[in-house]
Design a protein around this nucleic acid. Structure first.
Lengths: 363, 363
DNA sequence: CTGTTAGCGCATTCAG
DNA sequence: CTGAATGCGCTAACAG
């Protein structure tokens, strides 16, 4: 049994509960009393904002250690204006891309001595809204969020009041929020151009819901590249499940204008397509060439290695978080937010038809 | 200089600031005043714990909506005993396994109306300790943690006091904490037995640091299976980087007792090994058979598909979180915690030498 | 350099 | 069924 801090005052009168506190966590006034100073002195020593004589400082520190005193952050946050916490809302945590974003955000927060309250929206605007409110009730100093479906998101300045918010990966309607994106359209366009250079004329875009900003932006880049080459677009937006995707692929491949190359909108669809392709015994790149949006850990070890557009997930999270801490530090709420667009890279492996022994990265 | 909230009533008598409050967030007494009731009535209506007359309730609710009043969770947490938040510490977020665990924990927390404060330890006991303290200062109602290096972790009951904590994926020394694990040893053992059934006699275990509980436990299972079959163990524990792993594999494979099969300790090492194997042009399973610990999204699409031990990541997180909320609800601090061990599955694909067209899952 | 006073927003007393 | 008083732990603002 470890000695509880309060044990020290066990013999005191009960009415003075304050001084009694057997198993209570020590408070600042416990420290003050033990050190024979006022609470403000303790506060000052702890925060280090104001000069306190060396001798007093010493006494306080000794008392702190003796009592194993830890400041109550809750009281501090409640009292002051800052909670030293930020909120983070992402669609899912099991998607490595989002997890990487989250990792970066938490790292930056840690550098600033901040806690992060995390939650997932499951791409649902209502959940997202409710969670944002919840965080606001907790008085977070700011929020970083990957907004859900573009047109439906209920995240607005009026909801947040003067709490700074930065959106990333996907924009929000409200122009007063900062937003950090990647070159979705340009990335898609370039990789389609690459496919075209390989001689492909019938390239299909296989996507998830077009109501997701990124999926749509990538489609736009794809379509642009096709148009510029005088080619017809061929896109689907309902590769929602493994089964659906399989069915869709089957239809496509058995039509008379079967695509000779495929571009997927994101890693989830990549997986579905890979599964379907394996199921039908289709060979990449001989039967169809393949390129995907978003790189992933094992993309180099699939059969064949996958050509992809690589997004700087961590970088995006980092930039978003820095932007937020910037806002927090300046305490200003801008009329119009920043819009930062990060570059993507093309990673040429072999699924597109390239013969490189090792990946070639083009930035 | 940011505008302080008080600026607005600069000309007013300072003493009555409370009743003026133009841009301040509405508080409970604002609502009370508007509804013409006492603050306690508002509190009661909001928490719904005590009966309040229908008419009064109505008035309060109207006032709440009119003022867009949102309770201050910080004040509530500070005042009451519960902060309605839990802490979650995991080694990394970029590892899909840990991210999945985290996802499950946050989901359960959401069901309970709790917020989760997340942070990463980077497997460093000091960081872990500091972060745990930090969370304690924030008065989380409980914590779920994946402890770092076994013998070095500084997480003890005395640190947490009466705050419930459950460890998962890896145990802690302190027997009073609950812990949720998976069958690491049994899983490794069974997959090694499978490799042995394929006729392998020289099976190597390639691991990360043995100071990580899971890596060590899996090694023990491996060794046991080898011993039972009268085979010699052959293990390394320093596949720390891609380069190191490549070097190690080269040595191993060029020795005269080169292994005919490999088992990796976790997905990270799997990736390093796959990379090295590709680099040297070694073929799986012809030149070496392969099995890995921990399944991952794309394991089915590597060349060849990978035979692995699958851990129930989400399930583990869910169970751990439920255990925690159980503790929180009962408010008890047990002398000795529960120890729950979850089963693993063996997923037979083709890297082990099996010829299955589709994965075979053995539980 | 140090101490005293006051109050953040809420919910637990205890009286009506 | 409702309200008034009180204080959670801390720090800004003012004394000394």
């Amino acid at each position: 049994m470890s000695e509880a801090p309060g044990t020290l005052f066990l013999n005191r009168s009960k009415r003075r509960a304050k001084t009694l506190a057997v198993h209570r966590k020590p408070t600042m006034s416990d420290v003050a009393r033990l050190a024979g100073v006022g609470t403000m002195t303790v506060s000052r020593v702890l925060s280090g904002t104001v000069r306190v004589s060396a001798e007093t400082t010493q006494r306080v520190q000794t008392a702190v250690e003796q009592l194993k005193y830890r400041p109550n952050e809750l009281a501090r946050a409640f009292r002051g204006q800052r909670s030293r916490s930020i909120g983070l809302i992402i669609p899912y945590l099991y998607d490595p891309f989002f997890a990487n974003c989250a990792q970066a955000v938490t790292s930056v927060a840690k550098e600033h001595g901040y806690s992060v309250i995390i939650t997932t929206s499951a791409e649902d605007p209502d959940t997202e809204f409710a969670e944002a409110e919840h965080m606001l009730e907790r008085h977070v100093d700011g929020m970083v969020v990957i907004p859900s479906r573009f047109r439906q998101t209920r995240l607005t300045r009026s909801l947040f009041g003067k709490t700074p918010v930065v959106a990333f990966d996907r924009p929000v309607q409200d122009p007063s929020l900062d937003v950090v994106l990647v070159q979705n359209a340009a990335g898609a366009r370039r990789i389609v151009e690459h496919l075209i250079e390989h001689g492909h004329k019938r390239i299909a875009y296989m996507g998830l819901s077009r109501s997701l900003f990124t999926i749509n932006a990538r489609f736009l880049g794809y379509r642009r590249a096709m148009q510029d080459a005088g080619l017809a677009s061929d896109a689907v937006f309902d590769c929602t499940t493994e089964d659906d995707t399989r069915r869709i692929l089957k239809e496509k491949m058995s039509g008379k204008d079967a695509p000779t190359a495929i571009l997927t909108s994101n890693t989830l669809v990549t997986r579905y397509i890979l599964s379907a392709i394996a199921h039908f015994g289709i060979r990449i790149p001989n039967d169809v060439a393949f390129a995907g949006f978003d790189d992933f850990d094992m993309a180099e070890f699939t059969a064949p290695p996958l050509t992809v557009v690589r997004q700087p997930a961590q970088e995006m999270g980092r930039v978003a978080a820095r932007l937020l801490f910037d806002r927090i530090a300046r305490g200003e709420t801008p009329r119009t937010g920043n819009r930062i667009v990060l570059p993507v890279e093309i990673v040429l492996r072999r699924s597109c038809g390239c013969k490189h022994r090792n990946p070639v990265v083009i930035s």
